[in-house]
């Protein structure tokens, strides 16, 4: 009986290490090998009681015009092809249910559970949180509210590898948000 208990315990220990490690491995690979893209977004400041302060990153584009909306079902895994425009930011170009051809910049997303428009498909981005230090979060939030009212907008810097994304930084007017937070906190 003790052997069985120990075997189950060992398995539990292995799983407890494997779960975070599989995440770490995947994220590190994307950070190492992924292509850098910049996406315009908004970022208000909610609070997760378990995981602490974060900015809810919400890209400003979340709908893509499609010719045949019936191809896409709610909550379906699809690929959004991104294109670089004159503002030097990546924008949504089109949606495809299959992996796009090599050379194209694309990101794996899900279609939203509820769709409103017939000719457009709403998507859910794979990144939505940017965690912050608890101490500097309120001043960062205040700074964001005051400085993003007019022409300024937040940009999410994302690493992309085979459609998988990791958010690495936010920037305002091409200045790293991490640096802005440090300056504001002083």
């Amino acid at each position: 009986m003790k052997i069985v208990s120990f075997a189950v315990f060992t398995l539990a220990v292995v799983v407890q290490w494997a779960v975070p490690f599989s995440s770490i491995f995947e994220q590190e690979k994307i950070l190492r090998e992924g292509e850098v893209v910049r996406i315009p977004c908004r970022a208000p400041d909610p609070y997760d009681p378990l995981r602490g302060r974060y900015l809810a990153v919400s890209p400003s584009e979340n709908e893509v015009a499609v010719e045949n909306p019936n191809v896409f079902k709610p909550k379906q895994r699809v690929y959004a092809v991104l294109e670089l425009r004159d503002d030097n930011l990546q924008h949504l170009q089109r949606l495809t249910p299959t992996i796009p051809s090599s050379g194209e910049c694309y990101i794996q997303v899900n279609t939203a559970p509820y769709q409103r428009n017939r000719d457009k498909v709403k998507i859910e981005w794979p990144f939505s949180r940017y965690y912050l230090n608890e101490k500097s979060a309120p001043s960062a939030d205040e700074w964001l509210r005051e400085n993003t009212r007019n022409s300024k907008f937040v940009t999410a810097e994302v690493r992309l590898l085979k459609g998988r994304a990791v958010i690495t930084d936010l920037s305002v007017d091409q200045k790293s948000f991490r640096d802005i937070i440090k300056e504001t906190a002083r």
């Binding site: 189950v8 407890q16 994220q27 995981r51 602490g52 990144f127 965690y131």
Partner: peptide
């Protein structure tokens, strides 16, 4: 880990993962 890598995802996914690794 989810904080360091800014992983998104619903709290329910996190809760399920936590309870499954703790149940043994």
């Amino acid at each position: 880990v989810s904080q360091i890598y800014h992983l998104s995802g619903k709290w329910t996914d996190f809760l399920l993962c936590w309870l499954l690794v703790s149940l043994p």
